[in-house]
Simulated scan of single mutants.
Amino acid sequence: MQEEITLPVRDITRFIPQQPPIVMVDELHKSDGVTTVTKFLIKADGLFVEENQLKEPGLIENIAQTAAAGMGYQFVKQEEPIPVGFIGAIKHLQIAQLPQVGDTITTQVTVLDTVLDITLIKGEIQLNNTIIASCEMKIVLKK
């Protein structure tokens, strides 16, 4: 019997393969198969936090985990096992600002195309309604 899942979901680790301390998303707010939206509170003890800022690798991982959360949510809804995904490529990476400890970022990932087990996504991270980072990623699913 299919489980009813209501958004937002605060136990996001059930949809992603990552576990603490590498979890870079806190809440899943939207997942419709094309667009996924997450939120993440930057904490002082975070893995990619240095000098009170979430550094560039943390932003990239946040986008990747937002994509994973959206895919994982869809697989759970379809009662299928969640596959592991890998970043295959990153293009057009732009980082305008690094968020500070205490900031909550909102990340939106949009699926641009899917061919076989490769999904091309566009990710944007916002802080206070301003885009602070964006990129395209190819994500490869291992089934």
Rank of each mutant, 00 (worst) to 15 (best):
E3M: 15
E3Y: 14
E4L: 15
E4R: 14
E4K: 15
E4I: 15
E4W: 11
V9Q: 09
V9C: 10
R10S: 07
I12R: 06
I12H: 06
R14I: 08
F15N: 01
F15Y: 07
I16E: 04
Q18G: 05
P20G: 06
P20I: 09
I22W: 10
I22Q: 13
V23I: 12
M24H: 06
M24C: 09
V25D: 01
H29W: 15
H29V: 11
D32A: 01
D32H: 05
V34E: 15
T35W: 00
T35V: 13
V37I: 14
V37F: 00
V37S: 01
V37A: 02
L41I: 10
I42K: 03
K43Y: 03
A44R: 13
D45I: 04
D45G: 06
L47T: 14
V49Q: 11
E50T: 11
E50N: 13
E50L: 12
N52R: 09
N52C: 01
Q53P: 00
L54E: 08
L54A: 10
K55Q: 15
K55V: 11
P57K: 04
G58C: 05
G58I: 02
I60E: 02
I60W: 00
E61R: 01
N62V: 04
I63N: 00
I63Y: 01
Q65E: 12
M71E: 11
M71D: 10
G72V: 04
G72S: 07
Y73A: 03
Q74H: 09
Q74D: 13
Q74F: 02
F75A: 13
K77N: 13
Q78D: 14
E79A: 11
E79P: 00
E80G: 02
E80K: 15
I82A: 07
V84P: 08
G85H: 02
G85N: 03
G85W: 01
F86L: 12
F86V: 11
F86Y: 15
G88E: 03
G88L: 01
G88N: 02
G88K: 01
G88S: 02
A89C: 09
A89G: 14
A89W: 10
I90Y: 02
I90P: 00
H92R: 15
L93A: 05
I95Y: 08
I95N: 07
A96M: 12
A96Y: 12
Q97C: 08
Q100D: 07
G102M: 08
D103Y: 05
T104M: 08
T107I: 06
V109Y: 02
V111W: 08
T114L: 12
V115E: 03
L116S: 14
D117P: 04
D117F: 14
I118D: 05
I118L: 15
T119V: 12
T119S: 11
L120N: 08
L120E: 05
I121H: 03
K122A: 07
G123L: 07
G123S: 09
G123D: 04
E124I: 08
E124W: 05
I125W: 03
Q126P: 00
L127G: 04
L127N: 06
N128E: 12
N129E: 15
N129D: 15
N129F: 07
S134Q: 13
S134R: 12
S134Y: 07
C135Y: 01
C135T: 09
E136M: 00
E136R: 01
M137A: 10
M137Q: 07
K138R: 13
K138C: 05
I139W: 03
I139E: 03
V140G: 06
V140D: 00
K142I: 11
